[in-house]
Design a protein around this nucleic acid. Structure first.
Lengths: 267, 267
DNA sequence: AAGTGGTCTAGACCACTAT
DNA sequence: TAGTGGTCTAGACCACTTT
């Protein structure tokens, strides 16, 4: 460990519009080098995380941020470029840059990968089977990075396409975040559940990690999806993350794929 | 249709290092506006497609391309930024920019999404079951964008992890491209099949589109994977594309997911 | 020492949206 | 008309690799 401030050395005052820019002030906190635009990106992310700018809202213009952080517009631009590529913000020419929200057409199918074999994708109907509070089992706690036995909200629901039951979802949510979540509120709400999580609980999902397996429907599942016991199903285990890569949802989906498929682009 | 050259108007000579730049020459061919860096990107892609620079090779430096195309280095840079994000090229600081190749550690798992539930991912062993020439069935022809009845190469293989048969792949390849592909050559070759396709047949895969379903193993499949008939399997249908978004591979993989899972990042 | 990609700045103009 | 993001240029310096 050394006490020098690497960024101040790497990007001397002559290369900056001001001697007391972000690089110098941030460098002290982090002895490992990172480019200016990454530091700006990190600062903007912190503002998103803290709720300074909420989903759907307009963030300050590039010029404004540039002057706030004492860097050039190009540097702010590169930071926002990456945030935009990661779907944290959305740019609109002539209007400004907005915090990404799940209340938008473009976000609807980002986390819904099941598409009909024929016809255009559309959003399924929702039926809540049960909502329960329980103590987190070890495996659930591990994936949500909470303590075993902590309060979690358990949700079971069935999603249908054109009246055909197709998805059986089991969800586990940290009780500390999703206080007061009831079946009534879930049933009242139309549209993607992530929209409700965002608006009602201030928790915006930014990414998710899935593991997919093939299984056969057991008795219980078969009944809920109105299919034969033993029918092959996709078993999709998902962990979703909010700002700061904090896991805030564990979900196990069982997908009936006789009329639908899970779509994926490898690139 | 108008005969004006939009780019020449939008980006007059004063904004360019030369009056006879790319914008002017390309604009005539395409009446719809596109930014300079997109045109540069398209020109570079054409060179990749034509084989001027082959997978693994070094492409000209940014400065060199800038002077060739009569644009600034920053514009070339932005074009290469996108090509890099699309995995068409790979940048290496201090060395240069290289054409992406499947003969590389970082490319190995881009198209192999099956990972062990425990332990680190590794590459499976390969066993070719059969290689055959046949006339393309209608469905195969449609997806490969060739004529029904055209020659296709059919390959069946089994991939094993640590000796355990796990993947049964059926492949259909356009006969016009994959001339002289035999079981011997496939068996001799170690490593990912896309490496062989690239080196031996000059066909580099740049992206793929997959549809995933759950099915049950039938008699034939069960025997090949040494599992019980009726075992649930992932059915992964893939269409792979080379430069110019030309489909050149149709693949149906059956994945045994009792010890493995298909991993996917939603972002 | 020379060459490459990576970062940063400053300034110009274009395209789009709102007022 | 003003303000926003989008494009393009020119020049500087840094980090990394090779000669």
């Amino acid at each position: 460990m050394t006490s020098i401030t690497p960024n101040a050395n790497l990007y001397p005052a002559s290369a900056m519009s001001s001697g007391s820019g972000v690089a110098a002030s941030v460098a002290g906190a982090s002895p490992t080098f990172s480019p200016l635009y990454q530091q700006i990106k990190s600062l903007i992310t912190q503002s998103l995380q803290s709720g300074e700018w909420k989903p759907g809202e307009l963030i300050p213009s590039e010029m404004e941020l540039a002057s706030r952080f004492k860097v050039s517009q190009g540097t702010v631009r590169k930071a926002i470029d990456e945030l935009s590529a990661e779907n944290l913000v959305v740019r609109r020419q002539g209007k400004g840059t907005f915090v990404a929200t799940h209340h938008e057409a473009r976000a609807q199918f980002r986390f819904l990968r099941l598409a009909p074999d024929e016809g255009v994708p559309h959003y399924p109907e929702n039926r809540i089977i049960e909502v329960r509070r329980l103590r987190a089992p070890a495996e659930v706690a591990r994936l949500l990075e909470i303590k075993s036995g902590d309060s979690v909200v358990f949700i079971r629901r069935v999603q249908s396409f054109s009246g055909v039951p197709t998805i059986l979802d089991d969800l586990w949510l940290p009780g500390s975040i999703f206080k007061g979540l009831t079946a009534e509120r879930l049933n009242e709400y139309k549209g993607p559940m992530y929209g409700l999580f965002e608006t009602e609980f201030g928790t915006h999902m930014i990414r998710a990690s899935e593991q997919i397996r093939a299984i056969c429907a057991d008795e219980t599942v078969a009944q809920l999806l109105q299919i034969e016991k033993g029918t092959p199903l996709l078993n999709v285990e998902r962990v979703s993350f909010t700002y700061g890569d904090k896991p805030v949802e564990l979900r196990r989906g069982l997908y009936l794929t006789s009329q639908h498929h899970y779509r994926n682009e490898l690139s």
